[in-house]
């Protein structure tokens, strides 16, 4: 049985390559059939609200995020508190993600074998 992997993405999408690097881990791990969960935390939640990457001549991270289920990464979560702090509405998140409160996030950490936070 492969080890389960929790990926935590906590950086905003438009500056720096960190969100892309974490997504690459998710896509590569998915292609290898690893059990992967992805949690959007802190400013990482902005990744779910389709920024206009073309304005900055950047690759479209949002389109790539939609591919996660194709790569077998279907456990997608977002921190409810971080959405609330930023005035964001979970029903408008793309791709669709499951909202978790802080206790549920603690449980998520506990239930996976490995955690990578970027």
């Amino acid at each position: 049985m492969s080890k389960s992997l929790l990926l935590v993405s906590r950086h905003a999408p438009c500056s720096g390559s960190t969100p892309r690097e974490l997504l690459d881990i998710a896509l590569a791990g998915g292609a290898f059939d690893l059990p992967i969960s992805l949690l959007f935390l802190d400013d990482g939640v902005f990744q779910l609200f389709t920024p206009n990457f073309a304005a900055l001549e950047q690759k479209n991270l949002s389109a790539n995020l939609q591919a996660l289920p194709m790569f077998g990464v279907e456990q997608l979560y977002v921190a409810e508190r971080c959405l609330r702090d930023r005035g964001l509405d979970s029903t408008k998140a793309q791709p669709a993600v499951q909202c978790l409160d802080d206790a549920a996030i603690s449980a998520l950490y506990a239930s996976h074998d490995l955690v990578i936070t970027l």
Binding site: D42, D43, D102, I105, S106, A107, Y109
Partner: peptide, 15 residues
């Protein structure tokens, strides 16, 4: 930086 704040929110009772 928000890391500590965020960590204290989600840290488990036996972490």
């Amino acid at each position: 930086d928000q890391r500590l704040t965020s960590c204290l929110h989600v840290i488990g009772a036996n972490d």
